[in-house]
Nucleic acid binder design. Structure first.
Lengths: 260, 260
DNA sequence: TGGTACTCTGTACGTCGTATAACGTAGGCG
DNA sequence: CGCCTACGTTATACGACGTACAGAGTACCA
């Protein structure tokens, strides 16, 4: 899929749109606009939530808000900028409960969970390019909030940014796995278990398990341990524990919670 | 971009293709095939390396091997399966130097570096869905090899699989960031620094830095520390250190290497 | 020496983002 | 009060995409 994300277009225009600068929604002369940027963005988010970024087409958005396709281009310069606006909009709407929890582990776990929930509601986010993020009010609020979870840990500003980036990168990666697992099941009429089951006998014929003894042993063990169904969830839980343990070493002092 | 990856088609057919089962390249009757699956796959890899998965079209592959577009479909059932074959092919060709290094940290670092190099040579891999991997000889060899780095650490089979998955997921996520940063720079005529510079004054007008004090402070510090806000290389180094520290806790005994 | 199973080609369909031009509307100015 | 003009909106069109389908040509087997 094309890496839909602006950076492309005029940064000034995109920024003005993100912050809903006046002078972009209305001009003196001519007919009034029948819609608003927000209506368009909301419709697009709703569509993308069920169809994904590729299923999201300018035509489908136009149909949803009941205008011709090209009318959208008076609200938004193009699909890349629309995605920017969608992303900032969902960022802005995230819940941000107070972060006064005792331990930093529970604070960071909460941040991770909130982001995981976001990917759950809006799977298309996982496909949005992360370079050159939309510098809108949503991203700012999210960044400000998440940084606050790192207060009082003795990290300097640069380390705080690094640590947050690390945490969020992990959540995004885990979410991508979960999403693509779901997507595979959805558009193949075959469940994951059925797929592995369908492959097993053929694989047995073609695959010399003496040639790859460790792979055969570990793969079998891993497959048996979790029916391959909850695999993404398990990977998230395992990974988050590791991420926190890794950060614990950076933060120092705290004793890590071992065990799997 | 559509999530090009099979699982879709007939698993039997895909598997047979992956293992180059005889009976798929040649049939008794009719004209001989002028090409081979390998020629098609190689051409596709070369194209994807420079144009990405979206720039890779069946038409362009056909042009590269000098046949009509539809002739490809006698070698490969469709683009999804072609991508499966490409992925397994580059896996198979990875270097696998002996892993007898002393410390497990250097072993895992080597695995990470090899995968990072793979993403560097074949950026399109980062866009390939990870669910339902191509169960071909390349993946098997890679899996077998990478598992061997976890020998003798006292982890059980399930934990080994979890740990490897965790490591590889991290490398992929870091690679994605690096790749999309490069991509942004490539197709926007504006360097990352220029883009941030272009945004800075506009942002200053629209962004109330008293409303987001932490974000302003940390963002500035991070931006100053390394020339722009997103530094894929730094994020990789920072992240890998954290990943290893996190696994150290799991493995136990070893003292973690603190410090950033 | 057919017949037939196969390879390969060209055309066509429906999708996409968006450029372009035509049309309609309504406010500001004479 | 009425025209001009800037702007919203629409329909059409272009070139890309993956691939279904029908036809043409080829070489083995009976």
């Amino acid at each position: 899929m094309p890496a839909y994300r602006s950076g492309s277009g005029n940064p000034a225009h995109t920024l003005a749109l993100l912050w809903r600068e006046p002078g972009f929604g209305q001009s003196a002369r001519g007919p009034k606009q029948g819609l608003s940027v927000d209506r368009v963005v909301d419709a697009a988010i709703t569509l993308a939530d069920t169809a994904g970024l590729d299923g999201l087409s300018m035509r489908s958005v136009a149909r949803a808000v009941d205008v011709s396709t090209m009318a959208l281009y008076t609200y938004v310069p193009g699909k890349a900028e629309l995605v920017d606006l969608m992303l900032d909009a969902v960022y802005l709407r995230m819940e941000r409960p107070p972060v006064d929890r005792q331990s930093w582990r529970s604070r960071l776990t909460a941040i991770a969970e909130q982001n995981r929930a976001l990917f759950g509601m809006h799977p298309w986010i996982a496909d949005v390019s992360t370079a050159r993020p939309p510098l809108g009010p949503g991203l700012m609020a999210k960044y400000e909030y998440e940084l606050s979870a790192f207060n009082g840990l003795g990290l300097d500003d640069v380390a705080i940014d690094d640590a947050l980036t690390y945490l969020l990168t992990f959540v995004q990666a885990a979410a991508r796995t979960a999403i693509s697992t779901r997507a595979s099941q959805r558009d193949s009429t075959m469940s994951d278990e059925q797929w592995w089951a369908a492959n097993a006998p053929l694989l047995a014929r073609v695959f010399d398990s003496t040639a790859y003894p460790t792979a055969a042993r570990v793969g079998t063990a891993a497959g048996a341990a979790h029916g391959s169904a909850h695999h993404p969830d398990h990977a998230y839980q395992f990974g988050l524990a590791r991420v926190l343990d890794g950060l614990a070493v950076l933060i120092g002092g705290q004793q890590a919670s071992a065990g799997r």
